[in-house]
């Protein structure tokens, strides 16, 4: 089962890499036309393609690119001639840092609040937090980001409103600049996970085995922790996984608003510079993260859910 999932995951990444490569391939122009701009013609263009290895067949170049990527070598960027692995490495670290901070702050809080609101269904606590969560989910991130900058940075002056640290700086220098982006991300993320956990808790608490536990005389908190939560939190694993993937690849708006040097902003810059090797590299990384995180989530669910781990008796 495990081997099968790993195998399928690897195939997914491979297919995605082909699509990414083919997508870039069908665009008009290549790294040389982008680099040489107006001089991209005749001998100069040919020479450039020769040195870049662009005159070889697409299959050969794909093989080169893919085998390099497997070894951690993502090629060189088109304009700066710098190693993409180095460029992306820092950005990936920064994105991971942001994601990690948001997750450590957000996930425990989201799960706690989700459980509390689920147990206190339709009571004041539930109404307050559930409504807040809906707001947090619906307000566009740039709006909440701007409001937070206005309040905490401009008016109160407690926190820096923009990240000035350069991409390669050590982790410690990102504090406290990272706090506001983490809060904005945390809000959206917490809201999603909270709503999910809440509905899952409500569903489980209405179930037959909870009624049975009550009628068996099991004390309330015991019911919550031993009977309800192990079942109610299973679906949360997948939501948390999706959130992680989103944090690592898709927080473009927040990175731009706060000038945070993460992967998302690098992708935007690379696209506007037509730096196709970098675009390819980031797309591949993000795809791998998605596949990897979801695979991990499925495996965790499998480990924690006995129904998936062991065989059921055959039904009719």
């Amino acid at each position: 089962m495990l081997m099968r999932r790993l195998f399928l995951g690897a195939i997914t990444v491979w297919i995605v890499s082909v699509i990414i490569f083919a997508g870039v391939e069908v665009l008009p122009g290549d790294a040389c036309t982008a680099f040489l701009e107006r001089e991209a013609q005749g001998k100069l263009l040919e020479n450039c393609r020769e040195t870049q290895g662009l005159n070889r067949s697409a299959a050969e170049r794909y093989f080169d690119w893919a085998s390099g990527a497997l070894r951690g070598d993502l090629g060189v960027s088109a304009n700066g001639q710098k190693s993409i692995s180095e460029l992306v490495g820092n950005r990936l670290r920064n994105s991971l840092l942001l994601a990690l901070c948001a997750l450590t702050a957000g996930v425990p809080m989201a799960i706690f609040l989700g459980v509390v609101t689920g147990l206190q269904r339709d009571k004041p606590v539930d109404l307050v937090f559930s409504t807040t969560a809906v707001f947090a989910m619906t307000i566009p991130e740039f709006v909440s980001a701007t409001v937070l900058i206005l309040v905490f940075s401009v008016w109160l002056g407690w926190l820096p409103g923009i990240v000035l640290t350069s991409a390669g700086s050590p982790v410690s220098e990102f504090f406290p600049e990272i706090v506001l982006p983490v809060i904005v991300l945390g809000m959206v993320m917490t809201a999603h996970i909270l709503r999910m956990v809440r509905s899952s808790v409500i569903e489980v608490m209405a179930g037959d085995y909870i009624q049975m536990a009550i009628l068996k005389g099991v004390p309330y908190w015991h019911i919550v922790f031993r009977h309800a939560l192990p079942n109610a939190l299973l679906p949360a694993i997948n939501v948390v996984a999706l959130t992680i993937a989103w944090l690592l690849g898709g927080v473009v708006v927040i990175e731009v608003v706060f000038n945070y040097p993460g992967l998302g902003r690098m992708m935007i810059d690379a696209i506007s510079d037509r730096d196709l090797p970098v675009v390819q590299a980031i797309a591949l990384i993000v795809a791998t993260v998605y596949v990897g995180v979801n695979l991990t989530a499925d495996l965790m669910t499998m480990v924690l859910n006995p129904r998936l781990r062991t065989h059921a008796l055959r039904g009719s």
Binding site: G207, D208, Y209, Q211, M212, A213, L215, K216, R226, H227, P230, N231, L304, N305, P306, R307
Partner: peptide, 14 residues
């Protein structure tokens, strides 16, 4: 109490 449908009345994760 002995419930109807014990399949759903036993906690699945225990």
């Amino acid at each position: 109490l002995i419930p109807q449908n014990s399949g759903q009345s036993l906690t699945p994760t225990m």
